[in-house]
């Protein structure tokens, strides 16, 4: 089931095209990471699908138009957490529960999950940013939403706060929820997300499974006692793209179909005996930068 589908979603602010004809879909159970540099249109896109920013063109639908009030099934934390500062954390959660038409029974569990039990009756204006963020996550989870949206959930937090929030998100993902998460922290996305949407200047430059995006380059670390002979031979291997020296080893990129055993066999035929051959796992950060630079 498609929980979200956007069709040519666009937003223009005067001369600035913040989001341009964005079409993608999210299926139930997916954990989608929305990546992109500052100003790429991540928050605007999330704002549009959450109904606080009106698209100038295009449209979107939640749950295949199956719910009359779809946002009651969506929990979200967009940019900074927004609460009534003069009310306690508990009172703020009650307001969210009231709007979501959810009971109060689950609140205690959620408060415990985000570790706010000892401060929940204190006014929100006395909370640190990390505590407000945790309260916002608990608030997003009220009503057992089918989809949860996080926009830069670790923004402005110290390293301990980032680790805490990351752990909470991983706990939520482990419950099988559909999550849409915009983040700058690529390690976070790589560890948590099943799918990835990369934006640049308001346009989609990549969308797919994280493992597919990471697989699109085929890189090996190779070394031989005879470096000169190796460098000459390697360029003649079918599927060779380029190479560079990294940590005193040769890092060589081949086309997708090239296998390690095949490289070893061909180099041996050319008189090169390898002392090291390993496949380099590509990081999302590398893929992200390559994709951004390639457009």
């Amino acid at each position: 089931m498609e929980v979200l589908k956007t069709t040519e979603l666009s937003k223009r602010y005067g001369l600035v095209q913040a989001v341009n004809k964005l079409s993608f879909s999210v299926k139930k159970g997916e954990v989608l990471g929305v990546l992109g540099p500052n100003g790429s249109g991540k928050t605007t896109t999330l704002g549009m699908i959450l109904g606080i920013i009106g698209p100038t063109e295009g449209n979107y639908s939640w749950f295949e138009n199956d719910h009359s009030r779809p946002l009651l099934k969506v929990g979200s934390l967009l940019e900074t957490p927004n609460h009534y500062p003069f009310l306690s954390g508990w009172d703020n959660l009650k307001i969210t529960a009231h709007i979501k038409q959810a009971g109060l029974k689950e609140l205690s569990d959620l408060i415990e999950m985000v570790g706010l039990s000892s401060r929940i009756n204190h006014k929100v204006k006395t909370y640190s940013l990390g505590m407000k963020q945790r309260l916002a996550i608990a608030s997003a989870m009220i009503g057992d939403p089918e989809v949860i949206i996080f926009d830069e959930p670790t923004n402005g937090l110290d390293p301990a706060g980032i680790a805490e929030i990351r752990m909470i998100i991983q706990q939520i993902a482990a419950r099988g929820k559909t999550i849409i998460m915009a983040s700058h922290i690529l390690v976070e996305v790589e560890k948590t997300c099943t799918h990835c949407l990369i934006l640049k200047n308001g346009q989609m430059i990549s969308h797919g499974r994280v493992d597919q995006i990471l697989k699109s380059a085929n890189t090996f670390m190779i070394e031989s006692d005879d470096r000169g002979k190796l460098m000459t031979a390697i360029t003649g291997i079918p599927g060779y793209i380029d190479h560079q020296i990294l940590n005193n080893k040769l890092m060589v990129t081949f086309e997708d179909s090239t296998k390690g055993s095949h490289i070893n066999h061909l180099l041996f035929q050319r008189g090169v005996v390898l002392s090291h051959l390993s496949r380099e796992k590509r990081k999302l950060e590398d893929a992200f930068i390559e994709l951004l630079n390639g457009t």
Partner: peptide, 14 residues
Amino acid sequence: SHKTLRQNVITGLR
């Protein structure tokens, strides 16, 4: 000023 109108709408209030 507290951005709670925005939050109310995100939460599901029309």
